[in-house]
Design a protein around this nucleic acid. Sequence first.
DNA 1: ATGCATGAGCT
DNA 2: GCTCATGCATA
Length: 316
Amino acid sequence: MMSMNSKQPHFAMHPSLPEHKYTTLHSSSEAIRRACLQAPQLQSNIFASLDETLLARAEALAAVDIAVSQGKTHPFKPDATYHTMNSVPCSSNTTVHDGSGGGGGGGGGGLISTSAHPHPHSHMHGLSHLSHQAAMNMNSPLTHHGLNNNGLSSINDSDTDPRELEAFAERFKQRRIKLGVTQADVGNALVNLKIPGVGSLSQSTICRFESLTLSHNNMIALKPILQAWLEEAEGAQREKLNKPDIYSGGEKKRKRTSIAAPEKRSLEAYFAVQPRPSSEKIAAIAEKLDLKKNVVRVWFCNQRQKQKRLKFSACH
DNA sequence: ATGCATGAGCT
DNA sequence: GCTCATGCATA
């Protein structure tokens, strides 16, 4: 509730911002992205039944790896450290079939507001629903591009161009630094823009935006927001320079699981063979590596996300 | 800067 | 149970 960010006011952003309105961020590059990124998903299914031998091999390698490392000094049981906040609803259904891609997984949430987080410090960050399913499932080529009468311009081709995004991210970082603002400051200042649906963002997200380690869609969705902030911040600073005014203006923490190098290597070996293991395989892997099943599942999810980004940037 | 985690929305 | 956006915690 009262969890204010204890940030040093590097630079005070005041809410004298123009009334920007919310823009649905549609992405016409969605089709492209999916075509480029989701191919591997489909292909992975093909191996669903062929991976047995490879898996066996990976398991063998993993077993050796672990055996060796456990003989040595091993920091801690990756499994033993844990969240104090909640126990993930780890579905322990042991009846899952080997349908591999089964769940499949569709679009996915989007630019969520974390206001539902059990975290106490979860102020109202999140961009709630920007882009949302919109960016995800938009297939119609040019639905409504051009400009909105809002503060944010809607998506144009140039906005979805990877090259342009990259250039913007670079400029953004340089100008942010010139303003003497930290990534965290930017994230917290976003809420001051008063753009409907736009809350604050974390330092992590700003960092990832600058380093292009977000998904393409995510980059597209965030760009106009950060651009709006940048313009606002620079405008505010100009004002400050023009008129040399005189005035200036707890709870339980989540524990991060740390998967030891040997186990991680094993996971990578499994991933190379089957990026989308069935629930049962995940359980098996978890047992072999002595990790929680959920930890393994999440690891695979995160790994897939990472690979997707890498592949995208690789072919662009 | 990045690893592991959560939660929304969807299949 | 997946994807995706995003966050906390930490190296």
